[in-house]
Computed example of a mutant assay.
Amino acid sequence: MKHTLQLESISKWLPTASKPIIISGPCSAETEEQTIATAKQLAATGKVHALRAGIWKPRTRPGQYEGAGEEGLKWLIAAKKETGLPVTTEVANAAHVEACLKAGVDILWVGARTTVNPFSVQEVADSLKGVDIPVMVKNPINPDLELWIGALERLNKAGLTKLAAIHRGFSSFEKGPFRNAPMWDMAIELKTRIPELDIICDPSHISGNRELISFISQKALDLDMAGLMIESHINPDAAWSDAKQQVTPANLGKIIDGLVVRTVSSDNKTFKDTLSILREQIDQLDDEIMSKMAARMKISEKIGQYKKENGVTILQVARWEEIIQTRITLGKAMGLNADFTSDLLKLIHQESIQIQTKVMNKVEERV
Rank of each mutant, 00 (worst) to 15 (best):
Pro182Leu: 07
Pro249Thr: 12
Ala318Arg: 12
Phe340Asp: 15
Gly159Lys: 06
Ala39Glu: 01
Ser232Met: 01
Trp184Lys: 07
Gly335Thr: 13
Ser266Ile: 10
Met225Trp: 00
Leu223Trp: 01
Glu196Val: 06
Gln246Lys: 08
Trp56Gln: 08
Leu108Gly: 00
His205Val: 04
Ala238Lys: 09
Gly169Arg: 00
Leu278Lys: 12
Gly67Tyr: 00
Glu82Ile: 09
Lys358Arg: 14
Cys27Phe: 04
Leu163Ala: 02
Ala44Ser: 13
Arg61His: 14
Ser18Thr: 08
Thr274Gln: 10
Arg210Glu: 14
Leu221Gln: 08
Asn156Ile: 01
Trp184Pro: 03
Ile323Val: 14
Asp224Trp: 07
Ser9Cys: 10
Ser28Pro: 06
Gly304Lys: 02
Pro195Ala: 11
Leu152Cys: 06
Glu146Ser: 13
Val363Thr: 15
Pro15Arg: 11
Gln350Ala: 14
Met186Val: 15
Val87Glu: 01
Gly111Ile: 00
Glu231Cys: 05
Leu223Asp: 00
Lys272Tyr: 05
Pro26Asp: 06
Leu344Lys: 12
Ile277Tyr: 09
Lys138Val: 06
Gly150Ile: 15
Val264Thr: 10
Met297Lys: 14
Trp109Glu: 06
Arg366Tyr: 10
Lys80Tyr: 07
Val110Ile: 15
Gly311Glu: 10
Asp273Tyr: 08
Asp283His: 15
Lys332Phe: 06
Val116Met: 09
Thr263Ser: 12
Gly335Tyr: 05
Leu128Arg: 01
Gln350Leu: 13
Lys57Gly: 00
Lys308Leu: 15
Arg279Gly: 07
Met186Glu: 09
Glu70Asp: 13
Val131Gly: 06
Phe178Ala: 13
Thr89Gly: 09
Glu365Gly: 11
Gly227Ser: 02
Gly304Glu: 02
Ile282Ser: 10
Leu14Ile: 13
Cys201Val: 12
Ile348Ala: 14
Thr192Cys: 07
Leu160Lys: 00
Gly176Ile: 08
Gly25Glu: 04
Pro203Met: 04
Gly72Glu: 01
Thr31Phe: 09
Arg296Ala: 15
Arg262Ser: 14
Trp184Gln: 03
Ile10Leu: 14
Leu212Cys: 04
Trp240Ser: 14
Leu228Pro: 00
Lys138Pro: 06
His349Gln: 13
Val363Leu: 11
Ala238Phe: 08
Thr114Tyr: 01
Gly304Gln: 05
Ala103Met: 11
Leu51Ile: 15
Leu5Val: 08
Val135Phe: 04
Leu315His: 11
Met225Asn: 03
Arg262Cys: 09
Ala39Gly: 02
Glu82Gln: 10
Thr89Lys: 02
Gln356Thr: 03
Gly84Lys: 08
Thr270Ala: 10
Arg210Thr: 08
Ile353Tyr: 06
Pro140Tyr: 04
Met290Ser: 12
Glu32Ile: 02
Ala99His: 04
His167Val: 03
Ala103Trp: 05
Ile107Glu: 02
Leu163Thr: 00
Ser11Ala: 13
Gln246Ile: 05
Arg262Pro: 03
Gly335Lys: 07
His205Tyr: 05
Arg279Thr: 14
Val367Pro: 12
Ser300Glu: 13
Pro236Ile: 03
Gly331Leu: 02
Asp222Ile: 07
Ala78Val: 05
Gly25Thr: 07
Arg52Ser: 05
Ile324Trp: 10
